[in-house]
């Protein structure tokens, strides 16, 4: 019995580690080159340890706050609005998808034009929204909602459309009412698609909110970002914000995957099944190895035995 081992390059942890190491090495190589070729290397590509040092330094950079404190307080202003806009956009996206599913007329009226929203550059849209609302917080929420809306609406509608003819017919043979078909078939079937939409929308909402910040000078990640770039405060605030928002963007997607996992018992069961399978496979492999070793030893015994017998 031979057991194949999963090669190292195909294991998830190895892939993650590989990319993290790759990025660190590439960054450091770049930073070393920049350090000797540019006049202000910290503006272009500082060493990672410099950024880390800035993160942990307590030296005040702006109105008595350290760089990390500046990032965290402005992040609170930005991310709260991003989250609000995300929820609003996601809810609207779901409702619109439902309306389009319920009525062919609504779908024909709305769907082709939905994409237009996606095509208008946010950079152009944001100042208009700010001028209309006159409030940076409302603008953050609205722009984040606009960007979240489309992926959620589009994916959820695709989820409704994914329901097969057989499922409708099965429900017809039970004389199911319309609301029962929506509640028991369409919405559960669209749920994974809805979550896919959320996963796309979440980092978009964060980006949108940061972008709106840059328009006005009263706090927020985007505002600090541009001030730091204009040397109103330490340039490391800029670098901290870059890394921080990248982290928040990635984290938001994983958070939604996690929420989906928690709320979907079928997914959990599949995952449990897989991990159980892995456990069994590992146990089987261990047993096989043990057997192999034993066979080898027995074989050796046999050989030495026959040798000694021959000698005798």
């Amino acid at each position: 019995m031979e057991m194949k081992k999963v090669p190292l390059t195909k294991q998830k942890w190895f892939q993650v580690l590989f990319w993290i190491l790759f990025i660190i090495v590439a960054w450091e190589v770049g930073a070393s080159v920049v350090a000797v070729t540019k006049r202000t290397p910290e503006n272009v590509m500082p060493h990672l340890y410099q950024i880390l040092a800035a993160a942990f330094s307590t030296k005040p950079v702006s109105s008595g706050m350290s760089a990390t404190m500046v990032v965290l307080t402005s992040a609170r202003a930005t991310l709260l609005r991003a989250f609000g806009g995300f929820l609003l956009g996601a809810a609207l996206g779901f409702v619109f998808a439902l309306l389009m599913q319920m009525s062919k007329a609504v779908e024909k009226m709305i769907f082709p034009y939905l994409m237009l929203i996606q095509l208008i550059p946010v950079l152009g849209l944001a100042p208009i929204v700010l001028a209309i609302t006159g409030d940076i917080n409302k603008s953050r929420i609205i722009i984040a909602a606009i960007l979240s809306f489309y992926p959620v609406a589009n994916n959820t509608l695709a989820g409704f459309k994914s329901v097969s003819k057989e499922r409708y017919e099965l429900m017809a043979t039970y004389a199911a009412k319309k609301y029962q078909i929506y509640g028991k078939v369409l919405i559960p079937a669209a749920s994974p698609y809805f979550f896919t939409g959320l996963k796309i929308a979440a980092p978009l909402a964060v980006t949108a909110s940061i972008l709106v910040d840059t328009l006005q000078g009263d706090g927020g990640l985007g505002c600090m970002l541009s001030q730091s770039l204009k040397h109103a405060m330490s340039i490391y605030v800029f670098w901290l914000i870059v890394f921080f928002s990248a982290f928040v963007g990635i984290f938001s997607t994983y958070l939604i995957s996690f929420i989906e996992f928690i709320t979907s018992p079928a997914k959990r069961a599949a995952w449990n099944g897989r991990s159980l399978e892995k456990k069994h496979r590992r146990a089987a492999m261990k047993a096989a190895r043990k057997e192999y070793r034993k066979e080898k030893e027995d074989g050796r015994d046999l050989i030495s035995q026959t040798c000694s017998e021959n000698k005798a």
């Binding site: 057989e166 499922r167 017919e169 028991k184 078939v185 079937a189 749920s191 979907s264």
Partner: peptide
């Protein structure tokens, strides 16, 4: 039906 048409959730 020919296919089981079960609801996977």
């Amino acid at each position: 039906f020919q296919q089981p048409v079960l609801f996977d959730w």
